[in-house]
Each structure stands twice: as C-alpha cells, then as structure tokens.
Design a protein around this nucleic acid. Structure first.
Lengths: 330, 330
DNA sequence: CTGTTAGCGCATTCAA
DNA sequence: TTGAATGCGCTAACAG
C-alpha cells in the first residue's frame, strides 16, 4: 500500500481511507488513489486489515449435513447475500459431540469470522453466549426456536396445513411418518409432528398409536415405514410425511404394493423438494433459499449495528398435486 | 503470545516454535509452553500468522451449484479431509461470466487461501496460470480433464457400462437423454454422450437422430424429453439418461403414460443418486464423496510439496436394479 | 480534508 | 537449544 500511496502522492492513511470507502477524503483524491491502485493491480491484504483491528469480513456457516437438498438450497441463499456484501463464506459441517464442541470452543477465540450462521441445528445457550461474548454475531436459520435472531418457517403451521388438507378431504385414519435425525440430539422441527398429534384430538382422527411412525431421514426409511403401515390390519387412508424425501419413499412402497395414489391412499409431504413436482407429490412448500438470504441479511444487519428482527417466520403454502384425494368411500 | 512466553519463562520465539511443532525445542520446554498455553486458553491469531509470512490454512472450494446432490456430496468429502488436516473451507459458488471472472481475478491476489479446489467446472488455462503464478495450488474434481491435477470418474467408461448393459440385454433402438448445463459454457461430462454415439456405430444400434435428446439438468426436463421420445412413431425400447435426476423424470413420464419398466421400456441412469435405490433405478454408481476426499488430499499433498498424481480416475460400477430388462420381443 | 505515529500478534532471521 | 530484534501490511488515533 505504501507504493500506491507514494505513487498517488498521498499518505498511507488517506490511501487506506480511499480504498475502504471511508468518509473524509476529497472525491478527487479518492479517485486518484483508486486509479493508481488499479494500475498497480493492488488489493489490500485481508490478513493485515484483520490484524490491525479490523473485521475479518468472513462469516461461518454451520450445517449438520451437506448432501441434503435443504442445506444446499439454504447455502445458495446465504452465498448470494454474502457475496453481494463482499463477505466470504467459511463452511463448517459439524455433527454432534466432539467436533461440535471443539467448533464452538475454537472458532470464536480464533477470531476467524465476524459472525456465525447456524443452519438446522440449535446452538445451546452456552454456545450462543460463548459466541456473543467474544463479539461474534449469531443468527439461526431453518426450523428451530432459538434465543437469538432466527429465520424459519412455522413448522407447526406447515404441519397443520398438511393435516388439514387431508382432514378436509374426508380422511380420518391418517398416519404420520415423522423424521428423527440421528445426527442431532435435539430435533428442531418437532412442530410438524405436534401439528399431527394435535389434529388427532381436535379433529377427531383415529388415535391408533401404530399410525405414528418415526424413522431416520431418508427415502429408504420412508419406504420401510410405509410398508409397516400397509401391513396393519387396517391401513391408513392417508399419510402425512415429515418431509418430501420420506414421502417419496412412501410413494414407492405404495406403488410396489400395487396400490395407487390417491385412489387407494393419499400422501402429502412437506418441503417441495425439486423432485416432488415431477413425482406429482402434494406437499407444503417452503422457500428455503429465501430463508438463507434473509438469515444472512439479518446477520449482516447485526454486524452493521442495525436493529434485527428477533424472529422472522416465512410463509408456507399447500401445493395440491396428484397424490392426495378423497378417501375411497368418501 | 507474549503472555504465554512470559508465564513459561521463555522467549516468544521459542513459544512460537513450540506451538507450531517446529524442531529445535527441547521436549521439556515444549511441554511446558504447551501447558501454559492450555491454562491461558490461548490460541494463535491466524491473521497475525498469515501476515507474518505464514500460510492462511484456508482452501477455496469453487462450485457452480450448491443445491444439487453431486456438489453437496463432494463437499462432504472435501470437508472431511480438510477438517482432518486443520484447514478451513471457503466456499465460492461461481457461475459463468462476470462473477466468475472476478473470482479468478481477485482471489489469488488477495491471498485469502493457500489452494483452490475447482469442482465440476473446468478452469481455463489462463485462470489456472493466474492461480499457480500467484503461488496458489489448484486441483480439480468432478467430470473434467484439466491441465492440472484432477480426480474424476471415467465418464466415457461410465457411459459405456450403461449402454453395454442395454445392448447386452438385446436392445437396439436405444435413446439417450443428455444433459446440458445452462450455467456452463463448457460441458465437462461430454464423455457420457460420446460413449452413446460410439456404441451406436460399433454395436449396430438404430442411428435415428431423434433418439438423442439434450435438455437442461432437471427431473422435469428429463420427463419432457421422455415424453418426446414416447411420442415418436417408433419409441425406443430403452433409454440411457445422462444422470439419475433426468432418469427419474423419465420414469415418471413412463408411468404416467401407463407403461411399465422394464416390461415396456428400460431406463438406466448414471450417478446412483440417493433416491435411485428407492426408485429401483438401474444406474452406474460413482463414489462422489470419495472424489472430494481424494481431491482435497491431493491439494494438501501439493501444498506440502509432495508429489501428486496428475490425474486420478475413480472406478464406476453398474448397479442393476428394476428398471432394465430384455426388450419385449427379445 | 490530510498526514504522522503507533501498534495489531506472530514468524523469522541472526546471534549467542 | 534459545533469545532479541525486525518486519509482515494495515487501520485508528490524534494532530494539523
């Protein structure tokens, strides 16, 4: 930078200010500095900036999975917002247990990032406090309630939209295939299952406990759960799946059994996975990418000292496609 | 670090050496320094290390997409290897055009990372040169041939495995649904289509050009392409899809048309997408996560000054499931 | 509006 | 094997 300063005939301080869009530089001077910098193909060293008390202009994004559609989609949104603001994205995939602990232990102390975006897993109060006391902003995204700024959908409401759709079609013997994430000690999106159990009482559904299946998150497990449901003495007339991936597995079991949707059984999922449109799956749509965008925006706002909404809830919408219909004998 | 040095009764130089596992420190001294550092919950400032001539211990991973299964899976592999080596992962999603240019322009000059892992998109020679001259290592992963270390599958071979399977079953009127990525100027995995066109000649297949469809990468487009194929005067008896996502779309069109696989038509994909097992799709399996692991390992080796394999090709394997069989009048 | 000065925290010479 | 000194490149006070 010294070279640029000299070539522009100004001091390093002015150069720094010009390069960082800071106030207190005459427009003409600023332009001259910028021009010289361009000629020298000069770019500031982020390491030096950081060391000198500045920020890192890096954001850590913490996810429990990478190969699942939801997380990729959130990342797209986060990436777009961060890049637009000139921030870099550091990706951390942390599971539960040791590597998670070490993550929350080491990251803030090392001052590697200005903020943390936690996606899909709740950070404990201790972890949160650890971050904020180190001056690191934190925002969460994706199905959870947290004591810090959060953007998510209303999982409980989404579950209701799905169940109500089935109930309104006339179904009474409704099953749910719920998901449990083996990689998470707390399951953030219990709201979907809650909506189901509530509806069971409020809308006078068949309370048979065998109609509630809980399996790991995968199409295969969805298929197995569906097989178990079909094996019941009296199979359900409709199934609510915690996610589209589970629903897709269920659909396949139904087909293999020689049954048809929605003639023999209805299936509704939640998410609106890219393949769902093609598989004609009725589902509750959420805008995942937008959640990423918003969460990143909130984090950036916090970094800028602006007020943040404490909890933003994005709407969901029932998308009726071909896998749901009235039960057989109306 | 000064505090630690004082508390341990040694100089900063010794402290630095001890903390960085460098030679020239008496075991006893090293242990004492480490112990003091632990008590003080001290961690080195990466910014200061970098500034002082050290490396960043950061790797940039460049991908064209984030919400597609393949890229999430590669990232899982990369992340695992990088984390194990104590490196951080900076994620860059770059498309084509302006933001891509600016990426390759700015990243190396800013010395933000020690190396770059390019996934799924070929870097031009100019871009590659720009990186290496700035002292940044580069390794590629995923379906492409590049003038620098690369790990991929043999796309041509994978295509062959798929076509041969169909030919061996007795099919002669075989169609291909190829993928074109609207986000990429160069399409790296042309090998799959090449295998198809070659087999057409070598194995005496029906050369009807209408049997070759090329569509954007999505289940929906796969479905549309399949509809076009079914609308032909003489539909194919088998279809090779460039990827499982396209194949899944095709399968759905087939079902909607009241046809059955493999009775009326056979379908084979490439990838072994997580949903393929559940949908019983015959496919050619590739180990995507391993590609990520290996690519990261190669990059790390290069950084360490070790020899790198110039081009590593991972095996693929035909997985015969329920969507392929002999043609109707065998 | 601009310049001067003083660190930021570490790795690395070169001596001892 | 260890220590003292130097500089990495920049930003933030403070002065002018």
């Amino acid at each position: 930078m010294a070279d640029v300063a000299r070539a522009a005939g100004v001091s390093m301080a002015t150069t720094s200010r010009a390069l960082n869009d800071q106030p207190g530089v005459a427009p003409a001077t600023r332009e001259r500095v910028l021009e010289v910098a361009r000629q020298h193909a000069y770019v500031v060293s982020p390491a030096a900036s950081t060391l000198s008390g500045g920020a890192t202009r890096r954001i850590a994004v913490v996810v429990p999975h990478l190969s699942r559609w939801f997380f990729g989609e959130v990342l797209e949104g986060i990436d777009a917002t961060l890049r637009g603001a000139g921030y870099d994205l550091m990706l951390y995939r942390v599971g539960e247990g040791a590597d998670r602990d070490s993550f929350f232990e080491l990251l803030p102390a090392r001052r590697k990032v200005d903020g943390v975006l936690v996606v899909g897993i709740p950070a404990s109060e201790a972890e949160q406090e650890r971050l904020t006391t180190m001056g690191v902003q934190i925002v969460a995204a994706g199905g959870q309630v947290a004591p810090y700024p959060t953007v998510s959908i209303d999982d409980h409401g989404a579950g209701r939209q799905a169940v109500n759709h089935l109930v309104n079609l006339g179904h009474r013997r409704i099953a749910m295939i719920d998901a449990i994430d083996p990689n998470a000690s707390h399951w953030p999106v219990a709201g979907r299952a809650l909506a189901f159990t509530e509806a069971r009482e409020e809308r006078d559904l068949d309370p048979d406990p065998e109609l509630f299946q809980r399996v790991p998150w995968s199409a295969r497990h969805g298929a197995e759960a569906m097989a178990a449901l079909l094996a019941l003495d009296e199979p359900p007339t409709a199934v609510l799946a915690h996610s589209d991936e589970l629903a897709i597995g269920a659909l396949h079991t139904i087909r293999r059994a020689g049954l048809d949707t929605p003639r023999d059984i209805s299936v509704v999922g939640i998410d609106d996975h890219p393949l769902s449109e093609e598989l004609d799956l009725t589902t509750v749509r959420q805008d995942v990418r937008e959640q990423g965008r918003l969460a990143a925006r909130m984090l950036l706002d916090g970094l800028a000292g602006l007020d943040q909404a404490p909890w933003t809830v994005l709407p969901t919408r029932l998308v009726i496609r071909g896998t749901t219909g009235r039960p057989r004998q109306g």
